[in-house]
């Protein structure tokens, strides 16, 4: 059984917690978000015959009240950066988070999956073709998801888990 630390990143209220909730049964209450800025959940899955435990660090949204703590990113094996398709601002936040991840020691080895969330409201999306292109050019997987309609949620996590199995990667570079 291999364990991996996964971080859920993204702007405030893009639906990180809803995605995690859709995916796992939580033990801890959501109030930890507002107090600690992070909540840890667990999901066990099998990828390519390899049993794996994902420890999902759902990190409070990056906004004026909560800055993502670099310590929370320490030792992560992969990350899902969530974008709310209906809010342009969340794309900008996602890109800056992406750069932050890649700037970590050994960051270039950390696989990233972009979640284009709120696919149930696709008619209200404001993401342009150029923006999607920018995401794809990073070489990361880009997956449309909706926690509400349970769309692409499993795919998000299994894609990332698949990449982890491939690279057998873990960020060994510690911060601080």
């Amino acid at each position: 059984m291999i364990q991996k630390k996964i971080c859920m990143l993204g702007s405030f209220s893009v639906g990180k917690t809803s995605l995690v909730k859709q995916y796992v049964e939580s033990v801890f209450s959501d109030k930890y978000h507002t107090t600690l800025g992070v909540k840890v959940d667990k999901k066990q899955l099998t990828v390519q015959g390899q049993a794996m435990t994902l420890m999902l660090w759902d990190i409070a949204g990056d906004d004026d009240f909560f800055k993502v703590r670099p310590t929370h990113l320490r030792g992560m094996a992969g990350t899902i950066i969530v974008i709310d398709g209906t809010r342009r601002y969340t794309f900008d936040v996602a890109m800056s988070l992406y750069k932050m991840v890649k700037a970590l020691p050994d960051g270039h080895n950390i696989p990233v999956v972009f979640a284009l969330n709120k696919a149930d409201m696709k008619s209200q999306w404001v993401l342009s073709e150029e923006m999607l292109l920018v995401l794809k050019e990073t070489g990361s997987a880009v997956i449309e998801s909706s926690a509400k309609d349970d769309l692409g949620v499993d795919e998000l996590f299994s894609t990332l888990a698949g990449k982890l199995v491939l690279t057998g990667n873990i960020s060994k570079g510690a911060i601080g």
Binding site: Q3, K5, L36, V38, M55, T71
Partner: peptide
């Protein structure tokens, strides 16, 4: 409780 999760949260608390 689930020791895996407790372990994660314990780390988060120390970081915090």
């Amino acid at each position: 409780k689930d020791p895996d999760m407790v372990s994660g949260m314990l780390t988060a608390i120390q970081d915090f």
